[in-house]
Structures are given as structure tokens and as C-alpha cells.
Amino acid sequence: MKFVGLRGYSRYSDTKSLSLDEINNLEDVAVTLNRVRDGDEIVEVCRKIKHEHVILNELYAIASVSKSKKVTVSVGMNATNNLDLEFYRELGAHAVVIPPELNYEVESFQKKGLKIEVFGRAFVEMFYKGRCQLSAYASGKSVKKSGVCNMECAKKWDVVYSGKKICETDFKPELTVYDVQADYVKHETRQIKGEGVIENGADSKHSQS
């Protein structure tokens, strides 16, 4: 399965995402709306999307849209434990994305009917995906609100301890490939091309990745 970002609603560049008409002309895609918008607005937009599978990042929208579509809870919601899964199950979600940092403990997640999606290939960042406000703090460009990241993490930083500089560092996102099994394995390609690819099962022969 391929997923595509809806322009104005998906995180990361609007130049790579697609308009509603373009998306509705595609077949077999899941649509990502993972930028912060009020729940009612997301619900309204989801009504206009012909596809049955969306990836959402807002609690009210997850609960509401789940009544009519398959909803995957975006990695931006930062589900890190079974209580999170329990809550999203209660809201009616179809699947939950687990942060790539937790791939090594994916077997500890109790699915109970919920699908788990993991990153088989991900840019592991300074903070959990969806929990970073560094760009907004430094430059006012907000990933969560406007889908734009100024990549402050990649700068050179002086590490100062007890008033003295001890070294320099940076926190550039690292492309990491995992050997991990789950219901869905996503291969993050956002910085390489406009579409990401989800394969159904890590060992699928039909993988397009």
C-alpha cells in the first residue's frame, strides 16, 4: 500500500504532497493528515476523501473518522505502551504506528485486534517523532502546525557543562534500517521522494520498497 500526504494537512513539504483531487484520482492509497488542525476540520476533509484508509494525528478526529474509515494513529501521537493501544482501540482505530526507537520491544505490545505498524526504515531523530518543537522554538517554523522544519538539530552545538565547553555535537537524523516484523512495515522515504511505501508484512513478495 502507498500512502500520500494531503496538501495543507500533512507534515513536511507542501511541494511534495498532493491536492484532494489528485488523491481522489489515485487508486489504493492511504491518506496522511498529520499536521495539527482542529478535529472538526479534519473530519470534514476526511469525508471528501474517497479512500477508506487515513492516517491521523488528532484525538477527536481519530475517534470520529474511525466510525466510517480505517484510521491509523500517526507516529506523531507517540504511542509507547499498551495503555496507549488500549485507548486507541477504545476510540475505534484500525492501527497504531509505534516509534522506531521501540522496534526492539514491539513484541511487548498487546494488539487485541488492533494492527501495529512499525518503521522498517526510518530517520531516527533527536526526539520522538511528533514530540519535537525545536524548530518552532528556534525559528518559529513549526512541524506540527505548518509542516515545516528548520532542522536546527543538524547544527553544530557546543556542549557546555558546569560553565565549560567540553565538546561539540550535532543531532542529525540518522537513516536506520530495522529487521522488524509487524502487521504493517513502513519504509520512510520522505526525504527521498514524495511518496512513502507501506508493504503488507515485512517479508511480502509484493513489496514496492
Binding site: V36, D38, L59, Q133, K144, K145
Partner: peptide
């Protein structure tokens, strides 16, 4: 990560009585 009034409303409806909104 409470960013929206709609998220706040949902949390309020399930028994959350106070919210520190997302810092952003």
C-alpha cells in the same frame, strides 16, 4: 500534545479536568 479545542473537549468528556496546553 493537546493542541486543539476538539482534543481538549474529548479529554474533558472522559474525565480529564485540567489541561496544560501544548507549549507551542
Amino acid at each position: 500534545n493537546v493542541y486543539t479545542a476538539s482534543t481538549a473537549e474529548l479529554l474533558y468528556s472522559i474525565g480529564v479536568s485540567r489541561i496544560v496546553p501544548a507549549y507551542e
